[in-house]
Amino acid sequence: MTHRSIHHAALLANPWNLPANASAHGPALDHHLLLNLWIALALLTLAHLILLIGILVRRRDAGPAPSAVWRIEYLPLAALAILFAALTVRAERLWADARYTGADPAALQVEVTGMQFAWYFHYPGSDATFGTTAPQFVAPGEGNPVGIDPTDPHSPDDFVTSELVLPANREVDLRLRAQDVIHGFSIPEMRLKQNAIPGQTVHIHFTPTIPGTYAILCTQLCGTGHFRMNANLRVLSPADFITWLASKQKAATP
């Protein structure tokens, strides 16, 4: 009973059912999304009202005169065109902010590799340079699921995790790769989604703001285990992150 009332209260506070946002770019995106949804709902209501009044209120005549085509057809159409143009401009500006430029050079670098059916996160270690990876070195049984070249001097301090751990309020630059088929890298709470494509490296960058544990999903059909291909994103406070990094570093360096 209490559970249900909590659910109802949540529905009132968040009628569109969006999950909480924990990223820096999220508030602007959410604002634009909600604006779009309310406009769509308003237009939906308006069009249905016109339709219902139109078919229920009697005044049978020959219909609107063809000469009224400018007033009835093109005027509302122009208004709609302006509305859609305005929304497009807003959306394109947000898109340009998110994607037209790369990450800050000081951003934390993590390489994300998708494979049937797991995500792996490759940290460059203390030398801040990724060891090279190649498919012939892939050996999940020997603890090398992403195929780091052991002969590369940059490799020894690298470490690979199965959960993504990030510090809050620092920009992160993800390099998305896929080993076998196309995967979709998505973190709903970070308002983020980008496909990982075999043979390519795609960069995306974002800044997590609120510490917590969030779901990383696969959103591109990748085979029978698609539904269970997910991982956790753990956002830590900067101090906690340094501790975590140090412990991983220690384990990696012999």
């Binding site: 995106l29 249905h48 339709l51 959306a91 394109e92 898109w95 994607r99």
Partner: peptide, 26 residues
């Protein structure tokens, strides 16, 4: 007409890449 309006109005939403970044394949 009713379904075309209802289904159609979400079209421009999905056509905005920044929103598609959240809504794609959901």
């Amino acid at each position: 007409v009713s379904l075309f309006i209802t289904g159609g109005l979400t079209g421009p939403i999905l056509a905005q890449p920044i929103l598609d970044q959240y809504l794609h394949n959901t």
